[in-house]
């Protein structure tokens, strides 16, 4: 029931966001229609960070409490997180092309940071599949999750300073934004965050079912 309400809320918000993006928010003077990309890029970037926070929470609780449900959360957040991070990279790339005339801009610290995050997500997922014993894979993934989360401030700081930029105080801080654009951006962020939560909950549920099926299969094979 709770999930259904969330689904509905996500759907309404998503349509509302689309309406605001394409019909309500003004077209940017310099960049033109391309700037609409922004309303997708910022939420994706935000979610790739948020997802890391979820992994961190899941990992810490898994290590201390040894309860499977925290590992399910951390694993699902890593999987959903890498999807959103990949999308952030793609959208960023599509943004970079018309603005800077290249598909990839190393000058843009947010893009570079996202790329490093992508690799850390990958490490989190790979270490699990490369570990022989399943129980230890979860522990190892949790360790990588904790270390990776702590690494994020360093990544943001170093990639911004690398090109002589000041580190952004807030990742999506944009000064002097038109109030209509600001509203649209905020709503987009909320809409995509709800979408993220919905997908994450779904993934956790699927993972629980997978574990259940595996357990039942084990029981069946033991019987026969």
């Amino acid at each position: 029931m709770k999930r259904l309400i969330l689904w509905g809320l996500g759907l309404v918000l998503m349509f509302l966001a689309l309406y605001l993006v394409f019909l309500y928010a003004p077209i940017e003077k310099v960049m033109g229609i391309v700037q609409k990309n922004f309303y997708l890029m910022v939420p994706m970037g935000w979610l790739s960070l948020l997802s890391y926070f979820v992994i961190f929470i899941g990992s810490i609780f898994y290590l201390t409490k040894r309860d499977r449900k925290w590992d399910d959360l951390a694993y699902s957040a890593a999987e959903v997180g890498i999807i959103f991070t990949s999308l952030a990279l793609m959208v960023g790339s599509i943004w970079a092309r018309p603005i800077w005339g290249v598909w990839w801009a190393w000058e843009e610290p947010r893009l570079t940071t996202t790329l490093v995050l992508w690799f850390i997500y990958l490490a989190c997922l790979l270490v699990r599949s490369l570990t022989v014993e399943e129980g230890r894979g979860a522990t190892f993934a949790a360790v990588v999750g904790v270390i990776g989360f702590i690494d994020i401030p360093f990544v943001i700081l170093s990639t911004s300073l690398w090109r002589g930029m000041h580190p952004p105080l807030i990742i999506f801080e944009e000064g002097g934004l038109d109030p209509r654009m600001r509203l649209t951006l905020m709503l987009s962020i909320v809409a995509y965050t709800v979408l993220y939560v919905v997908i994450l909950m779904q993934r956790v549920a699927i993972r629980r079912d997978e574990a259940e099926v595996k357990k039942l299969k084990g029981l069946v094979s033991q019987e026969s």
């Binding site: 490490a123 270490v127 990776g148 690494d151 360093f154 700081l157 170093s158």
Partner: peptide, 14 residues
């Protein structure tokens, strides 16, 4: 193979 995959992304800031 595992060590570089884990180690290098983390030490990028360094």
């Amino acid at each position: 193979m595992v060590l570089p995959i884990l180690f290098l992304p983390i030490v990028i800031p360094l």
